[in-house]
């Protein structure tokens, strides 16, 4: 039973990560591979505040969100000026720097040894310690992130984001400030991702830098792409699927040493298969990596030049 609850909590954590990344990758069409870094900011801020200053849990949540937002602004404002691939490289650089800082600032972050003994959340005297309590907390935060994301994508701001994804030049020509919109959604995405870190740090009670590497970022991207870019339910489905899949492998009876490798092979194969046959993912509306023109072609182009109906 506890095992099942543990999986469900992990799924909630990845739902938060994939929903927040989907706002960026799926809706706005900008690929970031620094998502695990923001996840890490959330985890480390929560852990350090609780361990060093013994601040209350609710305050730690707020501080984690603000810290991730500030990092989002620091990274986003200069690097969102870059085009496509160059932006990806900039986020990659940030991801690497973040890992190095966490790994080498030994007296502050514990370096490779990590931070053990993170206190469990305490909300107005109520201690959250059992699996079921953690699951409720995770569901609440995942629900909050879903609610925020849903409001954003259904609002005129969501329309602006999707339009930026489809044709930046047109959006500029009708007078919209695209850099401001991109920076805004980048900060929002980073802040929401930090919530996953808050749960992770207080649930596992131990963190170290290896949980927040570029591999983790790529795993979150896989969830978004396989679940379906630009579809929030897709991110939920993708998170559940990709987190539960390796667990199911355990029941086949593979020895642990092989299971870990099989897991990596499976993810890789799945990603390749999806990219070839269903680039929009399970539920997605936006085929990632295809140019706007390609997708229009798929829509059935009735409006050829000079062919007026």
């Amino acid at each position: 039973m506890e095992y099942l609850l543990h999986i469900l909590i992990l799924i909630c954590i990845y739902i938060i990560l994939s929903l927040s990344l989907n706002l960026l990758v799926g809706y706005t069409g900008i690929l970031s591979i620094a998502h695990a870094a923001f996840y890490g900011v959330g985890a480390y801020v929560t852990a350090l505040m609780a361990l060093r200053l013994e601040t209350p849990f609710l305050l730690n949540i707020v501080l984690a969100v603000i810290a991730a937002g500030v990092f989002g602004a620091v990274v986003g404002i200069p690097s969102l000026r870059l085009k496509d691939d160059y932006f990806v490289i900039a986020t990659f650089a940030f991801q690497i720097i973040m890992f190095s800082v966490l790994n080498n600032l030994v007296e502050f972050t514990g370096g490779p040894l990590g931070l053990p003994g993170i206190p469990q959340p305490n909300i107005f005297g109520y201690e959250i310690s059992t699996h079921i309590e953690f699951l409720i907390l995770s569901l609440l935060l995942a629900g909050l992130v879903y609610w925020v994301s849903n409001r954003i994508v259904k609002s005129p701001f969501g329309r602006l984001l999707k339009s930026i994804r489809e044709d930046e030049v047109f959006v500029k020509a009708v007078g919209r400030d695209i850099s401001a919109a991109k920076v805004k959604i980048f900060i929002i995405s980073a802040s929401l991702a930090s919530l996953a870190g808050v749960i992770y740090a207080t649930y596992i009670t131990y963190i170290d830098p290896t949980s927040f590497t570029v591999m983790e970022s790529i795993f979150i991207i896989s969830i978004v792409i396989i679940g379906g870019a630009a579809n929030l339910k897709g991110s939920i489905l993708g998170a559940a699927f990709l987190v539960a899949l390796p667990e199911l492998l355990r029941f086949i009876g593979l020895p642990n040493s092989i299971a870990a490798n099989v897991r990596q092979i499976l993810y890789g194969a799945l990603l390749v298969i999806m990219m070839m046959w269903r680039p929009q993912g399970f539920l997605g509306e936006y085929a990632f990596g295809k140019s706007s023109e390609d997708r229009i072609h798929k829509l059935g182009d009735r409006s050829k030049r000079g062919n007026d109906a």
């Binding site: 999707k162 339009s163 489809e166 044709d167 047109f170 997708r295 829509l299």
Partner: peptide, 9 residues
């Protein structure tokens, strides 16, 4: 000249 719009909305 090359007619730009957001075609998917």
């Amino acid at each position: 000249q090359d007619l730009r719009l957001i075609r998917q909305i």
